[in-house]
Design a protein around this nucleic acid. Structure first.
Lengths: 362, 362
DNA sequence: TTGAAAGCGCTAACAC
DNA sequence: GTGTTAGCGCTTTCAA
């Protein structure tokens, strides 16, 4: 059977369509309770569901929002942003159009046009990871950027506070007593977060009066293998320069550090402490031992973006909102192995026996 | 400035709206090339973009599809299904409404109603993993189920061929020479795939004339830790009953198997071969050594579902389409360690030397 | 307290 | 070849 229209409800209830519309939209209007009742029953009886299309055409508001992203939906890293955005959309009675563009400019342009043709009430432009992007042509000026910032400004945006996050990570290590802390950085086309986290790292080293050792700032291919290789290099350092703790740019790199440590027969955190970044779902918590890390507030950023886009929350015009990255304490951080007073003759080598400095010191 | 309407284009080009509509929709109609040209220019000049709302209202086709899922978008496991579905939607000029319900029945019901009110042309009901579900009330009968089947039938659906996938995994191991092959199964509320893969396992054991050993069918909590614990049990078996290979229900469990093996000082694949399932993005390939596994054809299933939903492909009415799970060969499978003719005195212990039987036998 | 009617922007049957 | 016009299903102004 065809969809019931408002006129069907009207005739079933013996009133005009105006009345039906007024009742169903809970208008203030003075309609007798009796009529209200009749209309509601009639609507239920004929199975009436208003057409969003017709309503949208008339009101010029569609209760619809477009979320365009590079590939957050089809990649396993940032899905929680979608959850946050969707939850808000649902709370506000909106539906979301999602389009992953694979970072293809042509697809992006078409998507923006299609979304505009749909007359979405709001638009969110999201990235899989924190970056500065060129705002796509044709993007409406009230769009909000999620996990990225437009190169020229001019839009509201939300990104993680990676500098503070990096600082928090290193502070965690300093508080445990570490002084020789390496930063296992991302190599190649360094993401902006890598610079920011480095700043946090240096800042805390400064606070703690630790002289940064350039040898402890290493770069790696962002993968478990890349992390492993770089950490092997770190562990090859002469003992007195070897790090007792590693702050990894992200959890994948941290996983590589685990592998390198295990191959050396090193125990985490007894012989080496590690803190990651991202709190990647189903990886950070599943390491052995579970990885202490800094969480990317994906869900919260998703919520923030949608709230601002829908006008539920006021986002400062043309400003970037920094969102806190909380420390997730698990079991990969402990006190450093006891100091060796003077350089020993031992060379870096595969340790199968428990190293002498490995006894916990508290 | 307000959106340009079709009438703006018409007056700019000095023609009627009919002509504009005909031209812009590439109708066969007899319109002079000259007019076509003028209309196109006028449209571009005023920046005309047709309103999908008005068009949808008039034609009763919205070029829009609703994809409702439990949580494929917000969880890191099945995002590629979305990529497949989206790619097809884009190719067909459709936009997709995505709603993750978190498997909440009330949210699901509301979402279905909202999507119906939007007059989506098609609807896909997707799950994060292969399961049999109760078709939600109110779901239109031409909806297609993705990675799940409706309990009572009556809908078109696509799921992975887990039985064949399980068989392929075990065949891989048998071909490498293994006879003592464990199935590291999912415990608890066993997913339907667990039964199916077990069938495949038993089938291939039968083909190979291997008597299934109940001690080699173990269950684990579906997590790396769960896998590790279960595999430790397996490795504690007396040598002659100990498995030389493990087929894990999924990659997460396989990761646990890696951990257990490493703690025993066992090398993969020299001392123990492992095959996983899922080809989970960024985990299977990043293991050390990279994990041989069976891929879940997420992208292809997503494509299939959208193609059928949009009528690009004929899906058999009320039938479940089984999609092949390809073997992804990496480096975790090798020949079994040489047989020890009679129980030896060697106990399970950390092997640092390469065992004499480790030479490849083909 | 309720109803008539205009109109949101478009397509398509029909007329010329 | 091209134009007129009737709706698609709704909201909302204005009148009664």
């Amino acid at each position: 059977m065809a969809r019931a229209r408002i006129s069907d409800v009207a005739s079933a209830a013996g009133v005009s369509v105006t009345t039906v519309s007024l009742v169903l939209n809970n208008a203030e209007a003075r309609i007798s309770d009796d009529t209200r009742q009749r209309v509601r029953e009639a609507a239920k009886a004929v199975g009436y569901e208003p057409s969003s299309l017709a309503r949208g055409l008339r009101t010029q508001r569609t209760r619809t929002v477009g979320l365009i992203s590079d590939e957050i939906a089809t990649t396993p890293f940032a899905g929680r942003m979608l959850a946050g955005a969707q939850d808000v959309a649902r709370e506000q009675g909106h539906l979301v159009f999602l389009v992953d563009t694979g970072a293809d400019a042509a697809i992006e342009r078409d998507a923006i046009a299609a979304l505009a043709a749909q007359q979405v009430d709001a638009m969110i432009y999201a990235c899989m990871w924190h970056q500065v992007v060129d705002a796509p042509q044709g993007l409406r000026s009230d769009a909000v950027f999620l996990d990225c910032r437009p190169a020229g400004g001019g839009y509201r945006s939300v990104v993680p506070d990676d500098r503070a996050g990096g600082a928090a990570a290193v502070r965690e290590l300093v508080a445990a007593g570490h002084r020789r802390i390496a930063y296992l950085d991302a190599g190649g086309a360094k993401p902006i977060a890598s610079h920011l986290r480095l700043e946090g790292y240096l800042e805390v080293l400064g606070e703690a009066g630790i002289e940064p050792d350039p040898a402890l700032h290493v770069e790696a291919d962002v993968s478990a293998l890349g992390g492993r290789i770089a950490v092997e290099g770190l562990l090859d350092l002469p003992e007195e320069r070897r790090p007792t703790a590693i702050f990894a740019f992200n959890d994948r790199l941290a996983v590589g550090a685990y592998t390198a440590a295990h191959h050396r027969g090193l125990d985490i955190p007894r012989d080496l402490s590690i803190v990651g970044y991202d709190d990647q779902q189903f990886v950070a918590a599943e390491q052995d031992p579970p990885l202490t890390t800094i969480a990317l507030p994906h869900y919260e950023m998703g919520r923030w973006a949608m709230e601002v886009a829908l006008g539920v929350r006021a986002g400062d015009e043309d400003a970037t909102h920094l969102m806190e990255c909380p420390v997730i304490r698990r079991d990969s951080v402990g006190p450093p192995p006891a100091q060796v007073a003077k350089p020993s003759r031992r060379r870096a080598s595969v340790n199968t026996e428990r190293p002498p400095w490995a006894a916990p010191d508290r």
